[in-house]
Design a binder for these strands. Structure first.
Lengths: 227, 227
DNA sequence: ATCAATCATATTGTCTAACAATCTGTCAAT
DNA sequence: ATTGACAGATTGTTAGACAATATGATTGAT
């Protein structure tokens, strides 16, 4: 029996806040891919003890945001082209599932909210507001995942997406693709509107595959292959 | 250039071994779902310091095997029927992807190995050897994932499956279903043999859905719903 | 000048000890 | 039976220490 008035105990522990802070620092690009995370510097940066810091690092490592190199220290995970391709393929499967589940399970309100957010996205075509765009996209996915009523999926998709965020710098510069993106997402939304979960899923997978291709092309163009 | 004689540095840190040990203890059922993990007891059990233990617990918590309850301590995650259903739906998507990728990417040797393992499974029908059966199934999935050449998928699927392992007690008792299971997997294998990735995927999803249903029925029968 | 062995230093891996904050169960008072 | 206070246990967090390992500089030999 969870009361409506129950206090939020989640963030009470310093540990949880530290994990959030560190994750935020990575996702925001403040700590860039490849950066070494020296314990002494990090403890000063966050004002916590070494023990706590190490606990947080373990957590983010198992989320894939940090790579642990024994005796050398943790490093912000840097994505290579092959790893990026793999991430996108898994993402296709999860996003496809999300669309299919949303179609079956979402409430009318959630459905409506999704359509509204999509309209907001459509209104942005032509304008140059990368921040608003990123936010609207985030809203879209948040709404989509919410409507799946599947917390496991929500968690896994979020974690996967967090790892992909690092590539945003690559995709942003190719933002001329936005009209195409919109068309692809539009097909997903239409399928959801029609109640056709299977098609929504297929369209979502196609969309992710297209995005993955853009990333691969950027890798080639910039010759970003690592050792 | 990795030498054949390179020492295994993976397990060198006590930390890594502790994580493995603790995970093993949970997966094996030695630490059952719902069990409290009191720090003092655990440090004695594994012979490590409190700090290390807490790091390991953070790791397993973010894998979902352990649930952290602030100020009360960690608990071995106990699956309810709803969560089980969600896990299986995600698993369907991932297993489907794995089959599809295997069809496209696996080498001839990997393909052959998969067929051999399946033959081993077929030979087990009728016999009562739960241990050998579990092992053969594990081999099957290990081979399947290997052939996908997708480490991200491998990792996510493994983590997801680890969480599901806890339900094995429910599915084992319903082992009269083995012939059906075999038939379902057989359809997957046939599709792979025919090079039809799409069908392999569909069959895999059907198989997982069937397994999920069994679990749901067991939940109903045993009336295992939690608060 | 180049290469290899050596050594000093920084950093990680791990442990112990301590104390504050929080939970849990007990016992007394009403 | 309910409330409240109290004691013990457990978690949350910090600090300090030392061993093992990595890194970069120095030295020595060729």
């Amino acid at each position: 029996m969870t009361s409506k008035y129950a206090l939020d105990r989640e963030d009470l522990t310093l540990n949880a806040r530290l994990v959030r802070g560190l994750r935020e620092a990575i996702l925001s690009g403040d700590l860039k891919g490849g950066a070494r995370l020296v314990e002494r510097e990090m403890t000063e940066m966050f004002g916590v003890s070494r023990g706590l810091l190490r606990e947080a690092i373990q957590t983010l490592a198992s989320e894939g945001l940090i790579t642990l190199v024994p005796h050398k220290g943790p490093v912000v995970t840097l994505l290579g082209r092959e790893e990026a391709a793999q991430l996108y393929r898994v993402r296709g499967a999860l996003e496809g599932l999300a669309c299919s589940e949303f179609t079956q399970r979402a409430s009318d309100e959630q459905r409506q909210e999704l359509f509204d957010i999509f309209a907001r996205l459509e209104a942005m075509v032509g304008k140059e507001e990368p921040n608003a765009l990123v936010e609207a996209k985030n809203d879209f996915y948040r709404c989509l995942l919410n409507g799946t009523a599947n917390e496991v999926l929500e968690l896994m998709f979020t974690q996967l997406n967090n790892r992909i965020v690092q590539l945003r710098r690559l995709t942003l510069s190719a933002s001329g693709r936005f009209p195409d993106t919109l068309k692809e997402i539009g097909r997903v939304v239409n399928a959801i509107r029609a109640g056709d979960g299977r098609r929504a899923r297929d369209m979502a997978e196609a969309h992710v595959a297209a995005a993955a291709e853009v990333v691969q092309r950027r890798f080639s163009q910039l010759d970003l292959d690592k050792e």
